[in-house]
């Protein structure tokens, strides 16, 4: 099913490209090359997939709990801000202390930022759809303030902070590529969230709340606590994503540190029916789409923002197919 959705999305986008005066038969091969031509390009794909997997796996947990968390973007920012703060201020700690500290700090701040929206939901019945989006804006604007104000490297320079201490940099494991252990951490987190959701009693509670909160409440399950928990873990994963982006790739914080990972991650999770472990595949796929579209922009001047639209169409195809899945399967089996 997800494969069909991708194909449909690429076909629709091909029409858009044609209308806009580009040749999809020229553009798509370049896109493919931009992602899979050699070790270097593929390692870049995995680097882009790293935050997508972390955020997507986290979101799958909240979606499974019935919460429409659209706030991964803001939680990512929260994580990257705190990670940068720690990375700069404790630069002289040894690596084996500093790296866990930075990652933990990032995860914790993401979790708290997400729990704020969760708290507003369970305490005031404020729709998380709106609150998470608003908290995204607050986090992004606050980051903008930090990098042009108190945390700016120099008052005349770019809107960015100084570099974090070298001890906080995540080790690379496949030189000469930039691939760092953050990718492995993402795989581990996706696996852990999968186990939590499907193998533990905590995950059972979260899923029960997500499908039928009323029945869960009648069965004595504390719905509010499960919502807060799901938000905390999901936000923690997103915050960790922000921390890994800073410590593994950028080594500093700047204004637009996320090109929209938080929103891409929604598609990453939905594409695989909110299965945390499968977000590894969809994360890599969307990473490849991004890498490929950048190549497309460089070579053919096709604006890479098109990727957002492609992802939106992927979501629409997925939901449409899931509704008609039985009918489509029947149609195929009858042939």
């Amino acid at each position: 099913m997800p494969v069909i959705a991708i194909v449909v999305a690429l076909l629709v986008s091909a029409v858009v490209l044609l209308v806009a005066g580009y040749d999809p038969l020229e553009a798509y091969p370049i896109m493919w090359k931009g992602a899979f031509s050699d070790q270097r390009t593929f390692s870049e794909v995995l680097l882009k997939a790293t935050p997508l997997i972390l955020l997507g796996a986290g979101l799958s947990l909240t979606f499974r709990c019935g919460i429409v968390n659209l706030g991964a973007e803001g939680q990512f920012y929260a994580g990257s801000v705190v990670a940068t703060l720690i990375g700069i201020n404790f630069a002289n700690l040894p690596s084996y202390l500093l790296i866990p500290l930075v990652l933990l700090g990032g995860a914790l701040s993401g979790a708290l930022w997400a729990m704020l929206a969760g708290y507003l939901k369970v305490r005031f019945n404020a729709s998380e759809v709106v609150t998470t989006i608003m908290l995204n804006y607050v986090a992004i604007i606050f980051t903008g303030y930090l990098v042009t104000g108190p945390m700016q490297e120099s008052k005349v320079g770019f809107p960015q902070t100084a570099q974090i201490g070298e001890a906080a940099w995540l080790p690379r494991f496949l030189p000469p590529t930039r691939l760092h252990i953050g990718f492995l951490i993402a795989l581990l987190v996706a696996l852990l969230i999968y186990i939590l959701l499907f193998k533990t009693s905590t995950g059972y509670g979260i899923r029960a709340v997500g499908i039928n909160a009323e029945a869960a409440r009648y069965a004595g399950i504390n719905v509010r606590r499960n919502i807060l928990l799901a938000m905390a873990i999901s936000g923690g994963a997103a915050g960790l994503g922000g921390a890994i982006e800073v410590t593994g790739l950028t080594y500093r914080l700047f204004q637009m540190i996320s090109p929209g990972y938080g929103f891409d991650a929604i598609a990453v999770s939905l594409l695989v029916n909110n299965n945390p472990i499968a977000t590894v595949l969809s994360g890599i796929l969307f990473g490849a789409l991004r890498s490929g579209s950048e190549m497309m922009q460089m070579n053919l001047k096709v604006p890479s923002v098109l990727v957002s639209a492609i992802q939106g169409i992927v979501i629409l195809s997925v939901v449409a197919f899931s509704v008609y899945r039985d009918k489509i399967l029947k149609w195929f089996t009858e042939r």
């Binding site: 429409v68 659209l70 598609a267 923002v305 639209a309 939106g312 629409l316 939901v319 449409a320």
Partner: peptide, 23 residues
């Protein structure tokens, strides 16, 4: 199609952002 309205809305936001930026 009776798809989840929130999910479709989120998709529309992505398409709106991507398509307008692209055009």
């Amino acid at each position: 199609i009776k798809a989840n309205q929130i999910v479709v809305g989120a998709a529309f936001n992505m398409i709106g952002t991507g398509l307008t930026g692209f055009i």
